[in-house]
Design a protein around this nucleic acid. Structure first.
Lengths: 338, 338
DNA sequence: ATCATCCGTGTAATCGATTCCATGGCTCTG
DNA sequence: CAGAGCCATGGAATCGATTACACGGATGAT
């Protein structure tokens, strides 16, 4: 593969001049420029990004570590992150932690070794020593969706409290009183916040959230299934199950079906995170939608700000309730999404 | 950040010795080894992968260019590709082409510039000049799922002909005679092959596939919706719609619902590509499942073979039919997947 | 005892770019 | 017309690793 030296030889100039042309440095004569460009063209020269990175100490690459690529919410997030990063001239390397802290650490380490310019993380746990070290070590970093208290890094996330309040009011209005929730891992912020928001919203309406109505999940479908089986086995099962993410909602749906029950007639179901498939399930599922694209864009911009010496800002955007048929009532096939 | 020189100084040896220890070169005294390791530990030294790559001319990174990350089939593929690559000591950079050839070219170019060791591609089109050039240029490359005729590169894919035949027999057995298909883009191999397999299977049963029953899609939901609307507007609409991928099936489901029809009573539906969500749609959708994990593993291994000087092999694995309720008949909620 | 081998180690070249500094020619100014 | 300043350019240092080569000392064979 042709190098800068070959181009210099072909154009009859020095490598310094070639480099200047390629980086549009002002001090280059028009004649040299055209000669270099012609040489680049005939040789099909492409600069070696590895060599350039070594010298300039920047890779124009961002690392994105997410907890589960198979979760459509994160897939979508990743897609928009890449889009915005590309617009800003960065590439993205995605690391899938699969909700496993040690895998998360593995990815963070390789990304750092590769000298990525910045790191976007949705932590799978409450904070590995490594993550703290990296943040303190000066690597530009931004948390997205989830964050870790005590690590001083900008956070870009959605605030679901308003939407959860709307949801609880909606359920209350439909006559439901016994509401249960499948929580996410206690080690994640989203795992806790959603339960708290739910509990608060219920309290405001004078409803209690007994411990038996709090299932412990891990953001995976199987845990949603299990938690729901427990709910259904209670002497007084809940009238509504609210899953803290979309995969657990699917597990819940499974468990309900397996029990021979029907949604929403026998039991209602709602989920945090709206995904396209919820329109097509039986029945379509009422969900809380996050502004995924905006979150992704804001996160990338915050990270780019940090990298390029500007002051990054934490961003919190509101989530909103999308009512479908899974909780009963008249709300029908409305095109409330997209 | 500490460099190899700092480690050498700390350990009281030369950089060469440090490098030897780190690369487990045999000619190092036990004493030097422990001293270097200790120095590495106290300094928290991590080798700079960029510098190493420049010198060794390998990045231990694979590029994966897929046509649509939001398509669960490709998401899953990407996830298993990363898993296998990691097991083999490679990182993966994913490029999402969004079914747009120019975006695909962009990703290929940046990946080449970054000197990835090999490229895994599921081409979005019939073959850009760039792709041909890269393949000819000696970059190790493997096609996965889709491929480009005329480019001599190993192909790892699923063969759906058997499963399609099973599907058509299943439909025929249920009494369906007017079968329609929503095809993928003609520029993709999967777009054509699936139609051909369908047509052949029908012919064997003495059925014709009229042009009006071939919808042109682009593997996106919207195109499935459109094609289905056309089918339903025909004087004699089909009894079955078979979508060549999962997103178009979803679009078809939308169109059928919008028309006020019911699946499978009014019209049957089946899809190529099985995804977890198909279990939860209304009704669960009969689909042709690809062995995604095996495909991903085979593709990565073929690429690693090529990179490491062994002879890579093309691999074709059979897809299989998973019967659910969307085509009618007795096939019920069976757990036929996973 | 002598010479060849081998082993552990260090010095320096190398990968392919960017960039500091020196240089020579030119223009501008006083 | 001389000195200052600027511009285009090239030579060489540099980034942080790997590795070819040289070298001295120890070991083994004859």
């Amino acid at each position: 593969m042709a190098g800068i030296k070959d181009v210099a030889a072909e154009a009859g100039v020095s490598v310094a001049t070639v480099s200047r042309v390629l980086n549009s440095h002002p001090s280059v004569s028009e004649e040299a420029r055209v000669r270099v460009l012609a040489a680049v063209e005939t040789l099909g020269y492409r600069p070696n990004a590895v060599a350039r990175s070594l010298r300039t100490a920047q890779t124009r690459t961002l690392g994105l570590v997410i907890s589960d690529v198979l979760n459509p919410y994160f897939t979508e997030l990743a897609r928009f992150v890449e889009e915005e990063a590309r617009a800003l001239g960065y590439s993205v390397i995605i690391g899938n932690a699969d909700e496993r802290p040690e895998l998360q650490d593995h990815h963070i380490r390789t990304l750092i070794d590769r000298r990525i310019d910045g790191l976007l993380v949705s932590p799978a746990d409450g904070g590995s020593p490594l993550m703290r070290e990296v943040a303190l070590g000066g690597t530009p970093m931004v948390f997205v969706d989830r964050w870790i208290p005590g690590i001083d890094v900008p956070v870009v996330r959605a605030d679901g409290t308003g939407a959860v309040k709307d949801l609880v009011a909606h359920l209350h209005g439909l006559g439901h009183r016994r509401l249960a929730i499948i929580a996410g891992p206690a080690a994640t912020t989203t795992g806790n916040e959603r339960v708290e928001a739910f509990r608060d919203a219920m309290r405001e309406l004078g409803l209690a959230l007994p411990d038996a109505y709090i299932g412990q999940g891990d953001f995976q479908a199987a845990s949603g299934r299990l938690a729901t089986q427990r709910f259904l086995a209670l002497a007084e099962p809940p009238e509504v199950v609210f899953a803290a993410d979309n995969l657990m909602a699917l597990g819940a749906l499974d468990a309900i079906r397996a029990r021979g029950l029907r949604v929403p007639d026998d039991i209602a179901l709602a989920a945090f995170d709206d995904i396209p498939w919820f329109v097509h399930t039986d029945p379509p599922i009422t969900a809380i939608a996050q502004p995924t694209a905006d979150l992704a864009r804001a996160a990338v911009r915050a990270l780019a700000d940090r990298i390029e010496g500007r002051t990054p800002q934490s961003v919190t955007l509101p989530a909103r309730l999308v009512v479908r048929r899974s909780c009963g009532g008249a709300a029908s096939n409305q095109r409330s999404d997209r």
